[in-house]
Simulated assay, not measured.
Amino acid sequence: MDKINLSVTIAVITMFISLFLSFFLVTVKTEHKLSNRLFAFFLILNAIDISVNLGYFFDIPLNARVFISSIFFLQLPAFYLYVLSVCYADFKLKPKHLIHVSTFLIANLILLPRFYTVSLASKISFLKKSSSMLEIQFNHVLVHIQIILYLIAAFMILRKAKKIYLENYAGASMESLNWLFQFTVALSTFYFIALLKNIFKFTEYPDISESLKIGLFLFELIIIFWYLYKALNNPGLFRNIDSRLKLVADIVSEDKNSAQLIDSEKEYNEDLLKLKSYMMEKRPFLNPSLTIQDVSKDLKIPVRDLSVLINHKLEQHFYDFVNTYRIENAMDILRDVTKSKVTVLEILYEVGFNSKSSFNTAFKKHTGNTPTSYRKSL
């Protein structure tokens, strides 16, 4: 009884927080309205799914209860679309995205003949023998296949978006992608635990399943609070990239196939000297939101050619290329005895970073030391 009370209490709290956060995401003024609405939809679906566990408190018809349970089939598609909207600035919902409701429709359609359309007595009999019913077994397998495929798809989108970002941007959106990756890992862990719960549910250890169920509610609550904390403390965190941008590897491959790749050493050297001179004289790296498009516009070099020059010829991501100049500038400041009172935080903002963690990571990658230890070693 205590476990049931604890489970219900945590479920109610999680539902309330999910609905509160979804209301906040829908009403808050932001330029990322679609992303917010998609995540709000994900949270609402999550709250509806949790409500099934409170079914014995309310007189909910069996048809409605089973239908509510099938809402789970919409959760990961909603999350996947959310990932797309965060990663790509020009993402829009289109009719083709209706394909993502197919598993939800299939799961309900196969229940029509022997559950939804039969008498109450037949419904009760069906649920009593649910573990041996072909429809339930099929849906059980289908939902786990869906979980695996959507999580893999989400990780693939994040991997590609990160590569494109590194090749074209030098701002703070990397933190957004890193955080979204962490969030997806947390969500994957959640669904893995849910899988274990379902396995134990049909064994001779149902108590373990019930304990895992309570743990899932707690874990879910922590994940939601984590998102809420990030959203409130980093309102500008979720910036995205242009989906029309291509990976340099794909550009090089296309050019090789079409015999358009220019291997002129003279032209390469000229563009490289022009780029390095521009970086030293104009110091564009001081702009924390610098993109390869900005550099392309100033140098009058096509984005495609500039991207190949930096990412392919120099074998260095644009992100790392720009950060090298930022770190060199930071090192100059740290070596300057007249600026010994300037804090590391002030320095990182001065040289073009807008995040302490990204500055420390880049500095250590470039020098092997943290900014503080580097200053002390001088």
Rank of each mutant, 00 (worst) to 15 (best):
F219A: 08
E220K: 11
L221G: 05
L221V: 02
I223L: 14
I224H: 01
I224Q: 02
W226Y: 15
Y227N: 06
Y227M: 09
Y227G: 03
Y229A: 08
Y229F: 15
K230V: 13
A231K: 09
L232P: 01
N233C: 01
N233Y: 10
N234L: 07
G236P: 02
G236D: 12
G236E: 11
L237W: 10
L237M: 14
R239P: 02
R239G: 07
N240E: 07
N240M: 09
N240H: 12
I241A: 09
I241T: 12
I241C: 04
I241E: 04
D242Y: 02
D242G: 03
D242E: 10
D242I: 10
K246G: 03
V248E: 05
A249V: 14
D250Y: 03
V252A: 04
S253E: 12
E254C: 04
E254K: 15
N257Q: 08
A259P: 01
A259N: 08
Q260T: 14
L261D: 02
D263A: 02
D263V: 08
S264F: 12
S264V: 06
E265Q: 12
E267F: 13
E267Q: 13
E267G: 08
N269R: 13
K274Y: 04
L275C: 03
K276C: 00
M279A: 07
R283G: 02
N287I: 06
P288N: 11
P288Q: 09
L290M: 09
L290K: 08
I292R: 09
Q293W: 10
Q293A: 13
S296Y: 10
K297M: 07
D298W: 09
L299V: 06
P302F: 04
V303P: 00
V303M: 09
R304A: 11
D305W: 03
D305K: 15
L306C: 13
S307D: 07
S307P: 06
V308L: 10
V308S: 05
L309T: 12
H312S: 12
K313T: 08
L314C: 12
Q316M: 15
Q316H: 01
Q316W: 00
Q316V: 10
H317I: 00
H317N: 15
F318C: 11
Y319Q: 13
D320G: 10
V322A: 07
V322L: 07
T324M: 06
T324N: 10
Y325A: 11
Y325S: 13
Y325Q: 12
R326F: 08
R326H: 03
I327Y: 08
I327W: 07
I327K: 00
N329S: 14
A330E: 03
A330G: 04
M331F: 05
L334A: 06
R335P: 01
R335T: 05
R335I: 02
R335N: 14
D336V: 04
T338E: 00
K341S: 07
K341D: 05
K341Y: 06
V342Q: 00
T343V: 04
V344I: 15
E346W: 06
I347C: 01
I347A: 01
L348G: 02
Y349D: 12
V351R: 13
G352H: 09
F353Q: 10
S355N: 14
S355E: 04
K356P: 01
S357P: 04
S357C: 00
S358K: 14
F359Q: 00
F359A: 00
T361D: 14
T361M: 11
